[in-house]
Simulated assay, not measured.
Amino acid sequence: MFTGIVELMGTVAEYNPQDNSASGGQGVSVTIKGASAILNDCHIGDSIACNGICLTVTEFDKDTFKVGISPETIVRTDVSDWVTGTRINLERAVSQEVRFGGHYVQGHVDTVANIVSVTPEGNSLVFGFKLRDSQYEKFIVEKGFICIDGTSLTVTQVDADGTFYIAMIAHTQDVVVMPLKKIGSLVNIEVDLTGKLIEKQISVALQNQFDDSHSTLNKLIEQIIDEKVQKYLSTK
C-alpha cells in the first residue's frame, strides 16, 4: 500500500525487454538508479511504486534497484515508453511511521491517459487528461482522489467528454516527473478504489435482488407493472 506522496525521482539506468531471468519477471527488467535515499532499509521482495506501479525489488545495491515487469503490467501502463534516462517517481510501501498525507493507493494501475493540455494558473500548472479506456471515466469525479504516475492528486474538473483536470502547485512540480512530460505523453492512472468497491457492492446486491423472485425489488417491480396495467385498462 502507498500514499501517493512521491519520495524522490529516480532514473532508468537499464531497460531489458524479454528478460527471462529469475529477476526479469518473464517480461521486462528495469534497473533504476539515483535511489539511494530509499534503499537504506530495502530488502529483496520489497515493493516500490515506480510511476505508480507497485513493483517488486529483485536486486539492489546502495544506489540502484532492479524490478521485473510482467507482460500484463506492460499492457496496462506506460512502461513500454520507458528508455534509458527516463525519470521515474518513486515511493516505498507505507510503514507504521509514515504520515498518511495522500490517499489510499494500491499501486495497481488501471489504465493510462494522455496529457492533452498544460495551462499555467498563477504558480500552479493545470493539466488536462484523456483516458485510453473510457470505462474508467465513471470513477473520476470532481474533488475526488486520483493517482497519476504515483502522485496523489485531486480532480478539479471533469468535462462532458471525459477530459479531466488537476492543478499542481509549485512544490509538487519540483519533485515529480509530470512537468517533464510533453502534451501527448502517457501517464499511469489508478482511480480511487472506493468507487470501484461501491460499484461492485451495488452490482452484486442488485443481481441478488433480481435472482430472488420474492425479493423486495422484484415485488416493487411487480407492483409498478400492475399499477401501470390497471391504469392502462381503466382507460379502455
Results as ranks from 00 to 15, higher is better:
Asp81Arg: 08
Gly128Arg: 10
Lys66Ser: 11
Ala93Lys: 00
Leu186Ile: 00
Thr84Lys: 12
Ala49Ile: 01
Gln173Ala: 13
Ser234Pro: 02
Asn20Ala: 13
Val118Glu: 14
Ile202Cys: 06
Ile53Arg: 00
Met178Pro: 00
Ile38Ala: 05
Thr163Val: 15
Asn89Gln: 02
Thr111Val: 08
Ser185Pro: 02
Phe127Gln: 04
Gln223Asn: 14
Val176Gly: 02
Thr86Ser: 13
Gln106His: 04
Gly24Pro: 03
Ile140Phe: 01
Ser36Thr: 08
Glu190His: 10
Gln157Asn: 15
Ile148Gly: 03
Gly45Gln: 00
Ser21Trp: 04
Ser117Asn: 15
Asp41Val: 00
His43Ile: 02
Asp174Tyr: 13
Gly10Cys: 10
Gln157Gly: 08
Thr151Val: 14
Asp159Glu: 14
His214Pro: 03
Val98Gln: 12
Ile224Glu: 06
Leu217Gly: 04
Cys42Tyr: 01
Ala160Ser: 11
Glu7Gln: 15
Ser185Trp: 03
His103Ser: 05
Cys147Ala: 15
Asp212Ser: 09
Ile166Val: 14
Val204Gly: 02
Asp226Trp: 13
Trp82Met: 15
Phe139Val: 03
Cys42Asp: 01
Gly68Glu: 01
Gly102Met: 08
Tyr136Pro: 03
Glu190Cys: 15
Gln96Tyr: 08
Ile202Gly: 01
Ser215Thr: 03
Ile48Asn: 00
Asp174Gln: 15
Thr64Ala: 10
Asp78Gln: 06
Tyr15Cys: 11
Leu220Asn: 11
Phe65Thr: 02
Ile140Glu: 00
Val118Asn: 11
Gly27Ser: 02
Glu121Thr: 12
Ser23Leu: 13
Leu8Asp: 04
Asn218Pro: 01
Val118Arg: 11
Val229His: 07
Asp159His: 10
Phe127Ile: 05
